[in-house]
Amino acid sequence: MYVQVSNYSKVIRGKEILRSVNVGFERGAIYGIVGPNGSGKTMLLRAICGFIRPTSGSVSIGGRPVVFNEKLPEKIGVIIENPGFVGSETGMQNLKYLADINRAFDSAEVTRLLKSFDLYDARDQKVKSYSLGMRQKLAIVQALMEHQNLILLDEPTNGLDARSVGVFLDQMRRQRDAGRTIVIASHHDGELTQIADRLYAMADGRLSS
C-alpha cells in the first residue's frame, strides 16, 4: 500500500477521536470517506499529514513513517478546514508563496489549473475580494499545483456551484489517471459515489468499508 494507516488511535482530553483505524490507500486511486460532522474524518487526514501524534498506531507513506512535526516522506496536497490565504495578496501571489516554500512553482500547471477552475481572470485580484467558492477553488489549485503524489481533501466542494463541482470531479479523475492517490472526506456521499474507486464510512472515530 502506498499509504498505510495501522491501528491508529487518537485520544484528546479523554475522548477517543480515532479508534484503531486500519486502512490502506493504493497509488492511482480515489478514496472517499463519508461520515457526519465530528466522526473523525478530518482528524484522520491530520494524522496522515503528521499534524498530530498518535496515541497508538502509525502512518506510513511510500513505506516511510510519518512522524509528528518532521519532514513528510512525500509531497502532500491538502485542504483541511477553511484555507488561510493572505487576503491582502492576490490569488497568484498566494499560490507563488506556497509553491516557493519548496521552490516548486510550475507556472504552466498553475495556469492550466486556474483556467480549468475559471479563476485565471481573477488571479491578480486580492483574495479578500474572492467569494467563498473562489477561495475554495484556489485551495484546490494549491493542493494540485505541485504534482503532489498524495492529495487529501476535506469537504473540497464546499461553496462550489454545480459547474465547478463537475470541473473538480474531472480534475480528480485526471489526477488519478496520472497515478496519484486521492483521499476525499465529505459528509455528502452523492459526489463521492460518482468518482471514488472505494468508499469508506466513518462514524464515532471508526472507519469501516
Binding site: R46, F51, N69, E70, I76, I79, E81, P83, I101, A139
Partner: peptide, 14 residues
C-alpha cells in the same frame, strides 16, 4: 499559534 495546513504540509512549524 497559526496552524495553517497548506503551509505546514510543505514545511513543518519549528
Amino acid at each position: 499559534m497559526a496552524a495553517e495546513p497548506m503551509v505546514y504540509v510543505r514545511k513543518r512549524r519549528g
